[in-house]
Each structure stands twice: as structure tokens, then as C-alpha cells.
Amino acid sequence: MSKFMPKSASKRKPLSTKHARKGYYKGKGATKEGTFRGKAGRFVLDQERMLDIVAPDLTGFKLKPYIAKTVPKWAPENDRNRA
């Protein structure tokens, strides 16, 4: 880190393995979808490793994907019990 950078600004920098605690590994939890090959180190995608998302057919589905802000937080029958 730069000696001219204030402490508050250094907290907002991206976290790397050099500035984290013991045991921190930046790539943990990610899937490897390819490999580096060749002299230039090009990244080659492997089709067998690619993420495949399987979603059900939602034609004729009546529910909306999002909840409006006007919807009350508690159900009406639970409101009377809470008071």
C-alpha cells in the first residue's frame, strides 16, 4: 500500500490474498470452465465444464417474479395476533 494513501481509502481497495488474513483464497467457490493452454496462455473453454441451467417451463404460470413494495410484510391474520 502507498504511504500517501489514507487509512480510510485503503479499506476500499480490492481485497487480495496479500492483504487478507491467514487462510483466505480468492478463487474459493468458483467453477473452472476451462484451462490456460499454449505459449500465449490463452483461456480455452471446455463445453463439458460449462454451467447448464435447467429451468422448468413457466407458460401459464400465474405468479409474478417480483413482490411489490405495497405488499404488507405480515399476513392479515398474523397482524391481529402480534398486537
Rank of each mutant, 00 (worst) to 15 (best):
P56V: 11
G41Y: 02
V54R: 13
K11L: 15
E33Y: 11
S16C: 11
K11D: 02
I53K: 04
A55T: 14
K18Q: 10
A20M: 05
P65W: 01
Y25Q: 14
D46T: 10
L58V: 05
S16A: 11
K11F: 13
K28S: 13
G60R: 00
A30L: 15
T17F: 03
A40I: 05
E33R: 13
L45V: 12
P65L: 04
T31L: 10
G38I: 01
K22Q: 07
E48K: 13
I53A: 07
S10E: 11
K26Q: 14
T59P: 00
Y25T: 14
L58C: 07
G29I: 00
R12S: 06
V54C: 07
D46Q: 13
Y25V: 15
L58T: 07
D57S: 03
K32V: 06
A20V: 02
T59H: 06
Y24T: 11
R12K: 15
E33V: 14
L15G: 08
D57P: 00
L58Y: 02
Y24N: 07
T17D: 10
A40D: 01
G38Q: 00
I53V: 11
E48Y: 08
V44E: 06
R49F: 08
K39G: 01
T31G: 05
P14M: 06
R21N: 09
K32E: 01
K62R: 10
D46N: 15
F36Y: 15
R42Q: 03
L51S: 07
K28I: 09
V44A: 12
G34R: 07
L63S: 09
P65R: 04
F36I: 15
A55H: 10
P65F: 02
G38C: 02
A55V: 14
K32Y: 09
L45T: 09
P56S: 09
T35K: 15
T17M: 10
E33W: 05
K64S: 14
K39E: 00
K28T: 12
L63D: 10
L58A: 05
F36T: 11
L15F: 07
R49A: 15
A55I: 12
P14Y: 05
T17V: 12
T35I: 14
D57M: 00
S10D: 04
R42N: 02
G38M: 00
G34D: 01
F43K: 01
E48T: 12
V44P: 02
E33L: 15
D57N: 10
P65V: 01
R37I: 01
G60K: 02
R21C: 08
P65Y: 03
R37L: 03
K64N: 12
G41K: 11
A30Q: 14
R42T: 01
F61T: 04
K22T: 05
A40G: 08
G27M: 11
H19G: 06
K28C: 08
D52M: 12
Y24V: 08
D52W: 06
L51N: 03
P14T: 07
G41N: 09
F61C: 04
K11E: 04
G34F: 00
D52A: 11
L63C: 08
G41T: 03
L58M: 12
D52V: 15
Q47E: 15
R12Q: 11
Y24E: 07
R49C: 09
